[in-house]
Structure formats: C-alpha cells, structure tokens
C-alpha cells in the first residue's frame, strides 16, 4: 500500500437503528488521506460528514451499525517504518482503539462551549490526555501542558491552567480543545467544523493555527466544514459529500477549477463573494431541501434538486467516474448514458 497514505477508508457504511427501522446515513464512502495534507470534507448539514469521521473513531452510540471493507490507519513507528492498523476490526472500547485515540488520531469538535468538562480545571483536562499515553509525573505533564498553551497562544499559561472552562472565552476554549488534541503529538487531526461556533476573527486565527500545524509539523488534517471559503484557503484535497455519499473528490485545485458534479457546482455558485456580485443580482441557491435520510429510495440522491437531472438518474446506482487523473465524480453525466451539458 502507498506509504504516503495515512488513512484509507473503503466502502464505509453506517446506519442507525431507529423506531422507523434501520436508516443508512453513510453509504459506500471511500477516501484516502495523504500524509501531511489537509483533506476537506464538504457538504451541507446532515450529509454524513461528521458521522463518517465518528465512525472511523468509533465514537457513535450503540444504535449505530458500522460496516466497512477497510478502515486502515498507517501507524508510523519512531524508526520510520509503517504498519497498518485495521480499525474496522476494533470495537468501540478496545485497548487497541484507545491506544490510537489521542495518541495517533485526535479530534477537535464543533462547539468549544460544550466540548470541555465544566467541572474540571482546563490544565487537568489536557494533562489527562497526556498521562493516559505517556509515563511521566504530574509535574512534568503540567509543564508540558503549559508549554502547549504557550504554543497555541493562550496568554499567561502558568495561571490559566488552573482556570475552569467557564472562565475562558470561546476562542480560548477552542485552543484548549486543540491542546487536548495535540498534547500527545498525534499524526492525524480530525477537525469537525472547528470554527463554526466562533466569530470570524477568531475563526481566522484558529485556521491559521491548523495550517501552521500542517506546515511546521507535517501533521495530517481532515477538516470537516461547510464553508467553501475555508476550503479554498486551506485544503489540499477535497471530498464533497451529499446524503451520505462522496459525490466528488479530487485535489482542491481540480475541484475549484472544474466542479464537475452538479451539486458541487451548485455549492460553489451559492458562496457569496464580497464585491464580486453584480448589483441587484441574487445569490444562487440550491432549489428544494435535503431529503430526510429515511425517505431516500432509489437513484441518485441529488436527482430531485438537480437542474441536469435525466431519466436514468432516478433509478439504480450511480457509478464513480474519473474525469481527470485523481478527480472522481459520481454522476451519470460522465458515464456516456447521458450527454455532458
């Protein structure tokens, strides 16, 4: 297997058992994450981006059923050798899974207001992650926590470690969350909409921090977002998801230069660009609503909202087609059944 790949996911299917039956949320998702790059997973709310990542890290509740052909994490040892960990065979709470969490793979969650335990001091919460994976005294651990706070730009770290989460602002809380994620120096960082709950100036600072992690420490980052602007600024690779499927994937350059899937195209057109709008022109929107996952039946999930919808789109599965090297699109426009407009 390619040594440059850090995480390989093949045919990931996650469904939830509910009162209405088993509802598939993530369907046949494939993706590769290259070491030292930022992969952006883009899509509307409810498209399954978070569920995909939570499936990989096994953070879902008992009503979730996760099936996959492969979820392989390429663990790099200190001597540089790489060996795969087959994560699909691990249970939610197994030792092997816990050894990966925090140490190899970390996650930053969407809402910093709720991702810290309100009753413990922040220093202790970061230290807990460190002491879980490394043998050291509490003093040594605390020194490292302070060091990490400094690196992440938290002012007065010596005193701030003794504060409770409620004594921090949103942006500072998110830095603490990032400190928890980074303290064990993991190779893969999954950031689940890390800036959605923050205001724009803080957003920029946090994203700058992420890009620096990639560039200075060669970290790999999976950035889950619905913000196309962020994707354009930071991502190397992009995967666009709709209703639990990856509908288009490729490098950021490819996708921004040539958004092939009608959904990607519609997403791009609905991004407001400051100063570039003609007077009186309305911002494009995607007609209709994302269907409820339990109502999705046959055919392409986007068919009922697509302006290029053809008869063949309404039934059967849609194949994945390579429109240029490394650029895949799941759409009938590219398989000869229909004619590209």
């Amino acid at each position: 297997m390619d040594e440059n790949i850090i995480l390989r996911v093949r045919k990931l299917n996650t469904s939830f058992k509910t009162e209405d039956g088993v509802i598939p949320i993530v369907k046949d998702v494939d993706f590769d994450v290259k070491r030292g790059t930022i992969l952006a997973v883009v899509g509307e709310s409810g498209c399954g981006k978070s569920v995909t990542m939570n499936s990989v890290c096994r953070l879902l509740g008992k009503n979730a059923q996760i099936e996959a052909e492969a979820i392989d994490y390429m663990q790099q040892e200190e001597d540089g050798s790489v060996h795969p960990v087959h994560m699909k065979d691990l249970t939610n709470t197994s030792k092997e899974m816990r050894a990966l969490r925090g140490k190899e793979i970390s996650m930053i969650f969407q809402d910093p207001m709720s991702s810290l335990n309100p009753v413990y001091k922040v220093g202790r919460q970061v230290m807990e992650a460190l002491l879980q994976h490394q043998k050291m005294s509490k003093q040594e651990a605390m020194a490292q926590v302070i060091e990490m706070f400094k690196k992440l730009g938290i002012p007065d770290p010596e005193n701030r470690v003794n504060n409770y989460p409620f004594e921090f602002s949103g942006g500072m809380k998110q830095r603490v969350v990032i400190a928890i994620a980074m303290i064990n120096n993991p190779q893969l960082l999954i950031a689940d909409e890390p800036t959605t709950a923050l205001d724009v100036t803080i957003q920029a600072q946090i994203m700058e921090l992420m890009v620096r992690l990639k560039e200075e420490q060669q970290k790999t980052i999976i950035l889950i977002t619905h913000n196309m602007g962020l994707v354009a600024e930071t991502a190397d690779e992009v995967a666009v998801m709709y209703m639990g499927r990856v509908v288009e994937s490729g490098t950021a350059d490819q996708i921004f230069a040539y958004p092939a899937h009608p959904y990607t195209d519609a997403l791009m057109r609905s991004v407001p660009v400051l100063g570039a709008m003609e007077d009186g022109k309305e911002l494009a929107t995607i007609p209709g609503q994302t269907p409820n996952p339990k109502d999705v039946t046959d055919g392409c999930e986007f068919a009922n909202r697509c302006d290029k919808c053809m008869d063949c789109c309404k039934t059967g599965l849609v194949g994945n087609h390579e429109v240029e090297p490394g650029h895949f699109v799941r759409c009938h426009l590219f398989d000869g059944k229909g004619v590209r407009s």
Binding site: C57, L59, T93, R98, A99, L100, R101, G102, K103, S106, M107, F109, Q110, D111, S114, S115, L116, N117, P118, Q125, E128, A129, Q132, H133, V177, I180, A181
Partner: peptide, 15 residues
Amino acid sequence: NKDYIKTARMKGISE
C-alpha cells in the same frame, strides 16, 4: 450525550 464525553473518549481513557 454531551460533547465533553466525546472529548474524554477521544483522549483514549478507559470507559
């Protein structure tokens, strides 16, 4: 169901 439980689990600590 709180997010901080996810954060805690993601640290790799025991259930």
